[in-house]
Every structure is written in C-alpha cells, then in structure tokens.
Design a protein around this nucleic acid. Sequence first.
DNA 1: GGTACTTGTCAAAACGATTTCAATTTAATT
DNA 2: AATTAAATTGAAATCGTTTTGACAAGTACC
Lengths: 342, 342
Amino acid sequence: MKLKEFAHQLGLSPTTVSRALSGYPEVSEKTRQRVAEEAVRLGYRPNINAVRLVTGRAGAIGAVMGRKGEFQFSEFMIGMAERLDGEDIDILVSPMAEQETRDEIQIYSRLVTSGRVDAIIVHSPRPDDERIRLLHKLGVPFLVHGRSETEVPHAWLDIDNEGAIRRATSHLLDLGHRRIAMINGGAGYTFSIHRDKGYRDALEERGIAFDPRLVVHGHFTDELGFRFARSLLEQSPRPTAFVAGSMMTALGVYRAVRSRGLVVGRDTSVIAHDDVFPYLTAENMVPSLSATRSSIRAAGARAADLVLQLLGGRPADEIHELWPVELILRESTGPAPAEARS
Amino acid sequence: MKLKEFAHQLGLSPTTVSRALSGYPEVSEKTRQRVAEEAVRLGYRPNINAVRLVTGRAGAIGAVMGRKGEFQFSEFMIGMAERLDGEDIDILVSPMAEQETRDEIQIYSRLVTSGRVDAIIVHSPRPDDERIRLLHKLGVPFLVHGRSETEVPHAWLDIDNEGAIRRATSHLLDLGHRRIAMINGGAGYTFSIHRDKGYRDALEERGIAFDPRLVVHGHFTDELGFRFARSLLEQSPRPTAFVAGSMMTALGVYRAVRSRGLVVGRDTSVIAHDDVFPYLTAENMVPSLSATRSSIRAAGARAADLVLQLLGGRPADEIHELWPVELILRESTGPAPAEARS
DNA sequence: GGTACTTGTCAAAACGATTTCAATTTAATT
DNA sequence: AATTAAATTGAAATCGTTTTGACAAGTACC
C-alpha cells in the first residue's frame, strides 16, 4: 500500500496524509485522528527507504562489533534498545568477521559514506584512534564508548576504570596483600591503559614496586584467567590476590586457585570487574565475588540517549560523561595470609 | 558526491556510470575500468537509500534479539557476519527492550512492511509460532533458527536437540545413573520440547520412570543452574547426574555440587550443551565438562548462507537442515556412586 | 555500398515518500 | 456584507539512484 493509494482511499491528498502522520501542526485534529486510525486499519506504513532518501536521514545507528564477538556487546545493545524503543531508529550491526577481507577503517567508511547510518558508536577506542579521526573528517555524529586522546573533538561516555581499579587494588593492599596480580584487557586500548594506571598508582601510593610479571593483557576469556593465574600460583612467592578484568577471567582465576588446592577468599583474594550480566552474577559465585561494578546495559541506554542528543544538534565536545564505578565487597576478598605479609 | 556530478566529471552519462559500477555487460571493459578507478579516487559511493528505493531491496537481514539478551546471540551474529562479509548486506538488529511497549509481532511487522529488511531470521521458535505465520502472510523470506510445527512452509536450520540429549542421558544411564536431573530452556520453545523428549525417551528405553521434579525450565543463567541443583542435592535420594542446557547453567550446577561438598565427576556427573564460545570453554573447566557440542557461530554462518539462497529464489520448503550434535566426554561424567545404583 | 547486427552510450521515466509554495476554505472582525 | 486573518488542503518539485527504450557508431556480411 502506497501513500498515493492510501490517500486516495481517504479522499485526501498525499500531502495531508503525510503531514497528519508525521504530526505537523497544519492539519486539523479531526483529520489527523481519522488518518491515524485508517492507517492502522488498512495497514499503511511509509516505505522507509523513500523516507530515508527524501529526508536524508538513515534512521539507524551503527555499531561495529569487535572481531572477537565480545560477550559484553549484546548487553550494551539491549541497553540501546531500551532507549530507542519507540523512536523508530534501528541498530545496524556490522560485525567484523574473523578473517575480514576489509579492514576496520573501510567498514566505518562504508557505513557512513553510503548513508546507512546517521550516527555511529565506537567501542574499545585507543588513545590514538584512527576511527575517531575518520568519523570526524566524514562529519558524521558519533559517540565513543570509552575514551581516547585523539585530538579531534568527540563525544564520549566512559566508566572510571582507573578509579575503579585503584580502589580495588588499594583495598587489597589494605588487607595486607603485597603481591597482587592483574589480568587486564587487550594491550593498547584506553580502558586497559587506565586500569594499568589505577593499579600502578595504588601500588606506588604504598611504595610497592611494580612487577611487570604480575600483569597480563589479553581478551577476556576464562582461558586467559586460568592460564595466567595458574602459572603465577606455581611460582614462589605466589601472588595472594588477583584483580580480574572481567567475569570470565575471574572464572578462570577461581579455577586456577582451586586447582592448586587453595581457597578463594582465604589463600587468594579476587576482585573482578563486573559489567552486570543477567546470566552470570558475581553475587552467586562461590565464594561470592567482590567486584567493581558498572552496568554495561545502563551504559548502552545512556549511549543511545546521547546519540539522540547528538542528532538533535548538541555539540559533540559538550558530551563527556564519566561514570563512577561501585566497589562491592563480598567473600572473595580477605586478609592476606599471615605468612605472605611483609 | 552524487552520481550526476561524478558522471559529469568523467564525461559520461549517469546511466553508463551506474552500469559500469554494477557490472552490467553492456559497458566496455575499458570504460568500466576507468569508472572503477575514478570512483575510488574521487570517493564516489552510491547513496544506499536511493538504491534501496529504486531497486526495492533493503540490503539488510533482520534479527530480533530476545528480551533477555541471550549471550548466544552475538556468537550467532559473528557467524552471520563471516558469511555476509563482502556481500554488502547489513544485519539489522531489533532488540526487544526489557519492557517493550510494542509486542513482538509488531516488531516483526514493522521490520517488514516498512521495507527495512529483505529477510528475517527467527530465533527460538515455538511449535505453534505466530511470527512464522505472520512472516509467511507478509510474503517476506525468512529462516527459522530452530524448528516449528507451524503449518505454513518455512525454511529452517536446527540442531538435533532431541538426539543430543537422548545420547547424553543414555550415556549417563550407561554409567549407572538412575536419578538424572535436567535443566532445560524456557518452557514452550521447540528446542526445549525436543530436549525433554530426548531425555524422556532415553529413560523410557531403560524402563525408568520419569520424575517431573527432576526437570526444570527457565532461562540459561548460572542462577537457575545453581538454585535448582542446590535444592535437588539437598533432597534424599539426591540425583547423581545433571544434564544442563547451557554452559551458564552448568557453571551453576558445578557451584551447587561443590557447595554441598561433593565432587563433580565422582559424586555427581554433569553434561551440558555447549554452543562453543571463545570466552568460556568446556574443556577448561575443572573438572573439564562433558558436553553435547554444536557451534552456534557455524550455525550463524550457515543461516546467512541459506538466507542468501532464499533471496536468490530457492523455495523455502526446500530448506530444512538438521545438524547432528557431537557428544564429547570429559571428566565431569563418571560412574554413578555405588550406593546410588539400583 | 547497403543491410544487419553488435556495442556503447544516453535521455527520461520510474521508485515512494516529504516539503515548498500557492490556493482554497473557514472563521473573525469591521 | 465586505474584508482580513487563520486554518486547511493540494500540486508539483525534490531526493539520488536504476532501468527502459532509443539512438548512434562501429563491424561483418553479402
């Protein structure tokens, strides 16, 4: 059913119908009412591609999913959906295939210059991020989830990774731990760098030397957590505490600790960063997991909101949001074993 | 840069340029070459929305993400991306918000009648699924990931849930287990029903009575696994084996077993269904987890492939694919404890 | 050299909406 | 009743492509 036909059936012109449906003021309330009702009854819906062409708006927000299919991604999207519900804006996901033939920059470039999306959300930025420079050059609105030091102005929403890890580490130090290992995210990402800094600052504050062998960078998999924790626990002196970058690495650490016959929360303390997943909760782990917590779903919702503001004309360099992170202490953290205290 | 301007710069007509870029035969190789080169050099790219309007194709495949933000979803999408890489087809994700104002059917309806997508992938179907009937009525190509008994013809790709669980259960029976609990997916979904059937058939084969108290339905969360396993393990006689519907529920079961001072693989056997995630592997669990395995990422890739075939004109009722599921035995399964044997 | 057939090119007509600008109707005021 | 202002409506232009049908130039054949 096309506009022309629909309008004809109503005995109105396409113009009036279009106006009635888009809520323009110059159409009488009575007419608007009738049009709205009939549209539902006859099942008329504007062809989105015609609308897009004429308005120049794509009606979609783009998100490029990392090559590794991070498990956090869907939660973030659910959050976006919550905000976008009823807005008539789609989420266009361009996942990068494992062995992608195009490079990342090309994907962004295509997304924008072909007019597929009105705005883009950039995940896992680096301090110097080429994507940000590209999007700025292309003049498309975009929001960075995380932060970057790229010189061009850009809107961002980030959590206080540095503060979170500093507090987590400090807390462990308070408990008497001295050899604290950290499982960070992939090297080079801003959030990893911030976490590194939080960790090192906490140590420095107490005058404890930084030992690079206690830190590892990598993807958030249970395997990384297990292998790294396992190999450290075999050494002597072994670390008495771990800071894990994600729930998955924490699972790996728990396993490693157990497999050495040690007990989490007594022999080895663990704090992880928890993005709050419905399917895996820190509270429920045994022992329950102390965590720095920040809902990635809430971040998704807010991100969508900020993008809408961006599309509404709010300047990008005005949008900088840094969320504090909760530290929730549970059973996985306890005083350092006496023999390990210095 | 628009087609008209671009063509003018080349001294050609828009027609010729368009044809050259879309690979039509009636343009000389020399011209085509030149056009292609200049397009790259000048950065011309057709406005996708104009193309969509005139061709009537949306250039996107839709997927509606469940309300719960299932963690399997992103893996499936990565698989799709792998196949779609280079096809110039997007993935449009419509996640349902937690408290969605529209109902599910409306989402599908909007997606299709407004011309946002060329095809749709339906997840988690039910035996009698209204969405399938709707999509058939609307005449849009769609592929069901899973199966349904809905009377209208439809393309589907599914794994052999029934066979997988039957074999898993049979194997546990072979090991002497008699009280075998099962954590299934949400009630009402076809895959849950198939799994139930596989479970019951295996029992029946040995003449073992089905005990409904040993089965639970619900979302795949660690919490469900933990609570259910925990409460069963408190009873007497307690089950000696668990069949878990997912890796997450398996984690919960492991915890429950441990928290009762029991040992997985010795006192309590566990088999789970493993969709193969990069961030959480059955092999790495301690003890390593016996599992029925089928890569959901591979399914995503194949699904995309089948959708392309559908779009290419292959009839839907010709596309029915049932994938076998591997059963991989590891350390979490062992003989039933002697005292529990009947 | 004329006919027939390719090839390569182009002008113009879609595609289905929105929006500008002008025209009409209705209401309000004198 | 005439004039003016306000409220509705509509015709036509527009968005940036693809594609149809026509046309010219080049090649092959008799």
